[in-house]
Every structure is written in C-alpha cells, then in structure tokens.
C-alpha cells in the first residue's frame, strides 16, 4: 500500500472522507482484495491500540481483580490436592501451616507483656512467585529473599520485576511489606496508598500492611483509623479486630 492509502484508512475511520471519496473508497474495498486486507488489518490495529492505551487503567484493575478471584478459587483446590497427593511444587503450604503455628504461639507468648508490638503481627505468609514463572530468576530471587526475610535483597528483585511489569499489583504489595520491614516508611506509604485507593481486591491487604506500618512507627491513632476501615469477611479482619482491641 502507498502512504496515501493509509492516510485514507485513517480518514475513513475518523469519518473524515468527503461524500465522493467515500463512494470511491467503498468501491475499492469491493474490487481490490489487497486494499481490503490492508484496511482490515489497519482497522484492527487501530481498535487494539485504542483499547490497550485508552483503557490502560481499566485493564490494570481488571487483571488485578481477576488475579485475586483466581487465587481465592484455586487456593482451596490446591490445598485439597496437597492432602490427596503431595505436590512438590507447593511445599510452601506446609511452611505456611508451620508459620501459622508460630504466629499463634507468638501471640500467646508476647501478649503477656504491655501493648501490641509490630513484631507480634509481622509474621507474613511465605510468598510463592515461581510456580507460574519457572524460568525467571528475578521471581525466584524475590521469593527466596522475601521468605528468608532478606528484605533489602527482595526489594531489589521486586524492582527488577516491576521494571518490566510496573502494573503488577501483587509484587507492589510484597514490595510494600518489604519496605515497612526495612523502615522505609515514606516509600511504603506511597506504594500502599496507591493500592489502597485502587479498585482491586488487594486494597484491604494494603490497608492491613499500612496499619502495621503505623504500629511500627508508634503512630497508634493512624493505625486505629486504618484498621477500622478493614471490612468484615476479608482475610485480615480478625487480626485487625484483635489489634484494635489491644490498641484501644
């Protein structure tokens, strides 16, 4: 196709062809197969660009929402599978169970002294990033460092992942945790607030982490304020209520 043809395609799609040009254009669509093929591709490209660029934010929200719903649906299934036949891919659930036991013990031991401490609540479940991205070294580095509580290293790996996929909300959330762990509160605030104000299912998790961040900074009133916004039925509601009682 000539330059002029593409200019015509664009004018047609924008509704900018004169009456005569429009007739000629339609005639050519019928009689010239190559012209028609090029136009169909041009039209689809135009529509795809419009969707991907203009709906960038919506697509981002949709994917994040889908991610959460998918995990919620499949976690129960994966758990079942592990009970039936142990799956080497998902050892991390065993660690998760072990970690939960440690958390419970932690509550009983620490709660005997004074007010609540960040360290009583920061027993984050191990993360699992490598199941889906087996070949990516950044993902495995991030997962290992995070789970070994080497948060500085984890942040570097998260940043490397986010460079390619800056809309990855799950990674942003974990990065938020790592930032709080390493006392980089200002940056944590920015990351977590962004997730909290988004329209995705990660927002309540982000609230919980931010509340813990304020707890760590001894800012009890801000922590309480955020804890009160964590809705019933969400993953961290029970912990949030417990912390609220201790803070009040």
């Amino acid at each position: 196709m000539e330059e002029q043809d593409y200019i015509q395609f664009e004018a047609f799609l924008a509704g900018n062809l004169s009456k005569d040009d429009l007739v000629a254009f339609n005639d050519r669509l019928h009689s010239d197969a190559q012209f028609k093929e090029a136009f169909e591709i041009f039209k689809d490209l135009n529509s795809n660009l419009e969707h991907q660029i203009a709906n960038e934010r919506e697509i981002f929200d949709f994917k994040a929402n889908l991610d959460v719903i998918s995990s919620q649906h499949f976690n129960a299934i994966h758990d079942e599978d592990i009970i039936i036949k142990p799956n080497p891919k998902s050892n991390f659930y065993k660690y998760a169970v072990a970690a939960s036991v440690v958390i419970l013990l932690g509550f009983f031991v620490f709660n005997q002294f004074g007010g609540p401490k960040y360290e009583e609540y920061n027993n984050f479940d191990p993360i699992s990033l490598t199941v889906r991205s087996t070949d990516n070294t950044n993902f495995s580095k991030a997962e290992q460092s995070f789970n070994n509580k080497n948060y500085e290293e984890a942040i570097r790996a998260f940043n490397a992942i986010l460079e390619d996929d800056f809309t990855n909300l799950e990674i942003q959330l974990y990065k938020g945790i790592a930032l709080v762990e390493t006392n980089q509160f200002e940056e944590a605030d920015i990351v977590l607030n962004k997730i909290m104000n988004g329209n995705t299912a990660y927002r309540n998790k982000a609230k919980w982490i931010l509340a813990l961040s304020y707890l760590k900074q001894d800012n009890t009133s801000e922590s309480i304020k955020i804890l009160k916004t964590i809705p019933k039925g969400t993953e961290d509601y029970v912990s949030a209520q417990k912390l609220l009682m201790e803070l009040d």
Binding site: M1, E3, Y6, I7, F9, E10, I41
Partner: peptide, 27 residues
C-alpha cells in the same frame, strides 16, 4: 500529527503482513 498517525499504523500494518505468524490470523 494526523498524517504521521496514519503512517505509523500503516507501518504496523506492513509489519503484521510481513510476519511469519500472519497466515494464522485469517485475513
């Protein structure tokens, strides 16, 4: 700007047609 937009999408059109994966797109 208008002309450039047309030509940029035109360039994409050519790249699509030249790709070895083009024949499975059913155009």
């Amino acid at each position: 700007a208008r002309k450039k937009k047309s030509l940029c999408i035109g360039q994409l059109t050519k790249l699509v047609q030249a790709s070895p994966k083009f024949n499975r797109l059913n155009y």
